[in-house]
Every structure is written in structure tokens, then in C-alpha cells.
Design a protein around this nucleic acid. Structure first.
Lengths: 344, 344
DNA sequence: ACGAGCAGTTGACACGTGTAAGCATGAGTC
DNA sequence: GACTCATGCTTACACGTGTCAACTGCTCGT
């Protein structure tokens, strides 16, 4: 036996991918017939024997339609553009986006993630428009302008949906009001009798998108009362937490809303290591209701964030795509409620 | 003053998106010239005044090229297909994929995430091939067959890269050998004198992709010794952890490799709540080296997983796309080393 | 004065697909 | 036998782009 040649089982690998014309030739019919058969076009009647011939030919050649040609001809796509967040967004959002993609896929859309890497808002909108997406769902990291929305719509987008806190002219807005998170947390702390309340601001870049409105909500919650809110920067490292804990007493705070559960856990441990009693001396509350928060002692209080499900949003996208001129429903994406445990 | 009409600042929104022909008409030149100018084609010389006219016309109309038409004509795309993981993959991988996308974007690729929702391997390959991607990077959730790889290559993919533990004929394989993780963990526990070692298996569906090879590695590490390995199923909930802890002593284990840090934290807390001393009675080790693992007491031992960076992988993709027939470099994506802290 | 050469521009084709409109065939009806 | 009429299929065009080859003026060298 000579050395086995198992690399190229059937086809010379450099052979170009077959087109519907090749299928037609092999089946002995016209290209149109091939198209009708493979798309099950109901308006045209094709006999069963022909259908079988065509399908067999397609199978034999390993025919795969060309998506670009198809959507060029069709004049539209099933692409849903999902501008990528390049920020280290928490597990809650990761899961949300995963589910969203999944559900869109179920509805037969093609999900395209498109980072926009330091582009301006209008440049980004332009880059997006090149793909002629039928829908754009923007987290709000890029703040679309009304012109951008209009450009997208003119280029075929039937749904442009922003998830951010701000409303953009022409786009469906799904208000994701981070302020409520800060508001609920601080309102809870106030009820517990706390007066000097710190609000942890992550130093990691990109998170301002969330931390700023959360701080704003916190401020609003003490407005007109005798309580005060103090922003406190901290990075997501043990060192940073330890440094903050070391000078904690100078700050004179009796409570802190720690952005989210991960930062809260980190800070709480650092405070304990610096002999600051939680919640006796300082109350701590996080956000996102992570399972891990219940493992520390005292159990971490948190703000439970009720997010719209990915399926829900996917269905909204689909609805708007089908009927772009329907009543512009306004949705509040988030509900937030404090979930007191033991650390506050 | 009548009521202000601010909705449609300039254009009747239903006007179709302009094509290069429209730009040509407005600039008073031919369509070819427009293409040459906007693409900066260096082989053809166009006078400066004409360039300016064309650019002005394009700007005025808000011209955006049609990506599908462009790639149809070009015969290839810059699409990198990233089959979506629909499994609840940990923060380590989330970050990795984020970075990968980001870096691919920098290299001017269009990243398309394409879930393949319960399709078979060959069906999935077919669906992917429709997009004519220039590269496919597959996590290995869908196990590509050699036929699938060949189909993708014939349809224009210059790089097909699998990240899974298995090697696929025809594809570049980047071996992500999860077995090392289990191996390192168990080897460490054995050094510490542990003999009856549990290996936690998450009950969450989809994670077998990781847990199975980790278990295999653990088994290999005790092979030929007097130590034994015992799989232990658990779900990521407090109840499941508590139930497991309640019958822990029946299992007669003196150590456990808990899949990853999150499961490890959950289990360790449950064991402590059931008055089982860690590490005295049972040693616990996780994996992924999460920051949060250092917050519990005792501090959680872990396996630090050294992953290739997203940038690194992106550059590999680019290299293979440029030179598909280059030496088929073999990469080991992961290094794993035990990081003993206090729980083992 | 006349061909050669060059800069600047254009006409025409190809990429792969979907579909409207038209053509051939044969069966049925008057 | 001429007419509808349904059936089954094909011919022909359009979608928007990139690019080759050809064409037009113009300048230059002799």
C-alpha cells in the first residue's frame, strides 16, 4: 500500500463554489426553475419530477446560495445590527445580550455585531448603514444623532432602537434608566437612617455610562432631605479597595452604594479587614443581585434589577420591523428595587 | 408662525438611498469616476477638481456604498464569522471574545456572530457559508466536520480555525486543552496528600463542553496512583449546594476540584455552613483565578488559566487570511497552573 | 504637420440572485 | 377546427458595485 492520500476526499479544493447556474445546467433546466424550486415559490407551479431533479443536482454540487447576491436583489436584508459594547459590562448584561441574539436568531434574523472603535456617532452610523441592516439595536455607548437615525432609516432600517437613558429623535427609545438603581439604593439607606452616603464610582473606563446616571439617581434621592451623597472613586483591584478602606474613617460616611455587587464585595471585605464594622459603622449595598453576594458575611444587600428579557426585546424588534409605523411604544426596560439582606 | 415641522429636517424619509449613479449624475461625471475617486484607486489618475466635485456630491446626497453589492462584485468579503456560544460561559471567556472582536475590528474585519441554534454540524456550516466569510473562528460548540470545513473553504473562507480540544481535518486547530485545568488541580491536591478527590460537574446544560475534558484531565492525573477521582454533580444554586453539603460526609471525599471559582465559592460556603472544615476536612480548589475568590475565608485556591489574548488570536486570523497556505502553526491556547491559597 | 504618448474620463461587462412576463404544450369546450 | 385555459417552464431584466479596455483631447518631439 502506498501512502494514503486522504486530504482531498472529492473535489479539487480550488474549484469555485457552484452557483445556481451550475445547478441548472446539471439538472437540465433553467436557472429560474432552480430558484423557484429551492425557494419553494408558491406562485409558480413546478412538477414534482423537476423538483426532485433540481434538488438532487443542488445536493450533488453542494450548492450554497450567496447571501450578498440574494439581498442585493431583494433590496433588503434580515440583518440586525448590534453595536458591540467594548466596555467590561457585567454578567447581567452579558446574559441579556446572549439571550437577545439567540432569540433574534430564532426569528430568522442574522445578528451582526459591529464594534465602532473610536468612531464618531455619524461615522459609525455610516459604517452601519453600509450593511443595510433591517434593524439596529444600540446600547447607547455610541450616542446616535437624529441625523444618524435618519441615515439608517433611509438606507432600509425599519427599526432603530436605542437602549440608553437618552431619547433620540426618530428612534424607538427603550429607556433603560440607570438612575432608578441609584435611587432605590439610596432611598433604602436613608430609610435605615443613614445620612452621609458614599457612591462608589468605578475607575475602569467606559463604566461612566452606567455610573453617572446611577450617581444622578442617588443625588436625586437625597435632594431636599438632610442626607448627602459623596462620590467615591475606586478601581476593581484589591489594592485600590485596601487604600480606600485605609482612609475610610476620614470620609466620615455611614453608608455606601457600591455601584454593583462585585465592587461591593470587594469593598466590604476591605472595610472588614480594616476593622470597620459592616453594617454597624458603615452600611454597604451593591446592585445586580448576584448569587455570590449571598456568600459573604454579612450577606450583601443589593438592588435587584429587573431587566426586560432578551426574548421580549427580540419580539419588539420583530414587531417594529413588521410594522415600522405602528404606535411608537415606549418601554421602561428596567425596574429596580432594593433587596435588603444583612449588610445594610 | 404656524406649527413648527421639525420632524423631517431635509429629506422626504421615503426617498430611496442614493447610489453611486446618483452621485455621478449630480457631479456631472460617470459612475466609474465616482468609484475611482471614492475608493482612491491609485492605478487611475483623476484630476483634483473632479475629485472635489465628486466628494462634494457624495457628501450632499449622504451616499453610503452598498456592502452586499460591493462584496458581490469583489468576490469576497471581510467577514469573520464567530459562531455564538449560547452557553453561559464564564467571565474569562466573555472578556476574551470581547477583545477578539475588538481587535478584529481594528484589522478592518466585519465580525458576524451567528448562532446556529440546534442545527447539525453540516447544516450550520452551510448556513455560515452563505455569508461567504473570509474566516471562521469556531469555539467548538458546533463540532465542524471535515466536510464542513471543506465547504467553507470552497466558498471562500481562507481561514477556518477551531478552538476546541479536538482537531478537525483541514482546519487550523488552536488547541484549548481543558484537560490541563483538571490535571493541574488534581495534581496539586495529590501533592497536598489528598487521596479521594471529588470533581464537581455543573448540571447547567452546555457546560459539558468544558467539564468533560476537565474531568478527563483529573482522571489522568490520578491514573496509576493510589488516589481516586469521583464526579459530583451540582447546580449553580444555593439549594443544590446545600443539598450536596448535607450528604457530603457520606461521599467520604477529602478534596474537591469545583469546576471553577464560582461553583467553588458556592460549594465552599455550603460546606462551611454544614460545619465541614475547609481545608482541614476537605480541600477546595476552583479555577479561573477570579478576584472574588480571594474575598472568602479561607482564601480560595484556584487554577490560573493562561489564555491566549484576543489580540493574539486576531493577529493569527489575519496572518492566515493573508497566507492561507503558510505553515499550519499549532498553538496551545492555554496554560494552566495551580495557585494554592488557603482552601487547599 | 503628424504620429506618439500621456492624463483624464467613460462605456460596458461581470458578480449571483429573484421574479414578472411571456412562450409552448396539451386538454377541454363550443 | 378555432377558441380558451391551465400547466410547466424559460427568457430577460434589475439590483449596485469595481475595473478593464477603449476613447478623447492635449502636448511634445521631430
Amino acid at each position: 500500500m502506498p501512502i494514503a492520500m486522504s486530504q482531498t476526499p472529492k473535489q479539487p479544493a480550488d474549484r469555485p463554489v457552484p452557483t445556481s447556474a451550475d445547478v441548472a445546467r446539471l439538472a437540465g433546466v433553467s436557472r429560474a426553475t432552480v430558484s423557484y424550486v429551492l425557494n419553494n415559490t408558491s406562485a409558480v407551479r413546478i412538477s414534482e419530477p423537476t423538483r426532485i431533479k433540481v434538488r438532487a443536482a443542488a445536493e450533488e454540487l453542494g450548492y450554497v446560495p450567496h447571501a450578498a447576491a440574494r439581498s442585493l436583489r431583494a433590496g433588503h436584508t434580515r440583518i440586525v445590527l448590534l453595536p458591540t459594547a467594548h466596555i467590561p459590562v457585567g454578567p447581567l448584561y452579558s446574559r441579556f445580550f446572549n439571550e437577545l441574539q439567540w432569540e433574534l436568531r430564532r426569528l430568522d434574523y442574522t445578528v451582526v455585531q459591529y464594534g465602532s472603535l473610536g468612531l464618531g456617532a455619524d461615522e459609525a452610523a455610516r459604517a452601519w448603514a453600509e450593511l443595510r441592516p433591517v434593524a439596529v439595536v444600540s446600547l447607547g455607548e455610541i450616542e446616535l444623532t437624529p441625523q444618524g437615525v435618519q441615515l439608517l432609516k433611509r438606507s432600509g432600517a425599519r427599526a432603530v432602537i436605542t437602549l440608553g437613558p437618552q431619547r433620540v429623535e426618530g428612534a424607538h427609545a427603550l429607556v433603560m434608566d440607570q438612575r432608578e438603581v441609584g435611587g432605590s439604593a439610596v432611598a433604602h439607606l436613608r430609610e435605615r437612617g443613614r445620612r452621609r452616603i458614599g457612591v462608589l464610582i468605578p475607575e475602569e473606563p467606559g463604566l461612566e455610562l452606567f455610573s453617572r446616571p446611577r450617581l444622578a439617581g442617588a443625588r436625586k434621592a437625597v435632594h431636599g432631605t438632610d442626607a448627602v451623597v459623596e462620590p467615591v472613586p475606586m478601581a476593581y483591584t484589591e489594592e485600590s479597595a485596601a487604600q480606600l478602606a485605609a482612609r475610610w474613617r476620614e470620609l466620615g460616611l455611614d453608608a455606601v452604594f457600591a455601584y454593583n455587587d462585585e465592587y461591593a464585595m470587594l469593598l466590604m471585605r476591605a472595610l472588614q479587614d480594616a476593622d470597620i464594622d459592616v453594617p454597624g459603622e458603615t452600611a454597604v449595598i451593591g446592585a445586580d443581585d448576584l448569587l455570590l453576594g449571598r456568600l459573604l458575611r454579612p450577606r450583601l444587600s443589593t438592588v435587584h434589577v429587573e431587566m426586560v428579557t432578551g426574548r421580549h426585546l427580540a419580539e419588539l424588534v420583530d414587531r417594529v420591523v413588521r410594522d415600522p409605523d405602528g404606535a411608537p411604544e415606549r418601554h421602561d426596560l428596567m425596574g429596580a428595587r432594593a433587596l435588603p439582606r444583612e449588610s445594610s
